[in-house]
Design a protein around this nucleic acid. Structure first.
Lengths: 151, 151
DNA sequence: TTAGCTGCAAATAGTTTGCAGTTTT
DNA sequence: AAAACTGCAAACTATTTGCAGCTAA
């Protein structure tokens, strides 16, 4: 489902790289694809594992380097760790809420009418020039709450 | 200014520790005090440095252990790194916005009318049971923008 | 008294970096 | 051909952990 939208998203990342004078190698394209196709907001290690079968020579260092490049270009966002001690990455640049399940360490997106106003409010009241945000709520997702989510 | 409020806040942290059956050692009390008195939301290393003159035998490991205990008790919050690669801690449990200046790595709090609604909205729409949040905006603070904030 | 805490040092683990060889442009 | 990139391994660094001795309760 929404395959062509995914292709567009991959093309957007590829375009960002080329635009900034970076080279579009097979490894980088694969990393972009993994970012877009991933359900949860992946870590570097998760992308690496996901790509390993198809790209056996892929290096974890290359994944880190590419992710950092994309972050520096503003093409993707870091959203911090999800209780697993590793950085997670988010392809969704639209202001939104990230929901972390502290039981399964998954991260999902949620649109929020209220959050869209917050950035404006913050800029107006603080004098800050806002460049980015991490809006993360921690809790227990319905799936985990369902099957024995006592903890 | 607001010294008695600060004393109350320190007492709150001390109370949390005792309440949970933990011991109130001089080191822990000093760490609580440093957390409350710190202007910016400090890292473990910052607390350690701040306390070192008065507590020359204080160990960084003890700072980490105490901070973790306080987080587990829900007495303080982790708010992620501020571009310096280290975890920052926040004593303010009221839902609020953290503003990180990416030039001076300082973190300050801001109240936001809109953010108070977001948690409700999220719980209602997602089915998540929310336990905590990190609302962090990154940008350039007015001070840094003033003196040559071109970058 | 004794369970829990401190301080120290060693261990962990995520991320970054240096470099030789390879590849995109 | 040249500049940039990959892969590997070593380096870094924030944080955690193990343990012997100390101390709050």
């Amino acid at each position: 489902m929404q395959t062509n939208t995914q292709e567009e998203a991959i093309a957007r990342l590829a375009h960002c790289l080329k635009q900034a004078g970076h080279r579009l190698t097979p490894q980088r394209l694969a990393i972009c694809r993994a970012l877009i196709e991933s359900e949860n907001h992946p870590t570097a290690a998760e992308i690496f594992e996901r790509l390993r079968p198809a790209y056996p020579t892929m290096s974890l260092g290359t994944v880190y380097k590419t992710l950092r490049t994309l972050v520096e270009l503003g093409a993707i966002q870091e959203i911090g760790d999800a209780g697993d001690g590793a950085e997670h990455y988010d392809v969704n640049l639209h202001p939104h809420v990230n929901l972390v399940c502290t039981l399964c360490n998954s991260v999902r997106d949620m649109d929020s009418a209220a959050i869209e106003q917050v950035a404006d409010e913050v800029e107006r009241n603080s004098g800050f020039r806002i460049r980015g945000a991490r809006i993360v709520y921690y809790g227990v997702c319905p799936d985990c709450a369902g099957n024995g989510g006592s903890r």
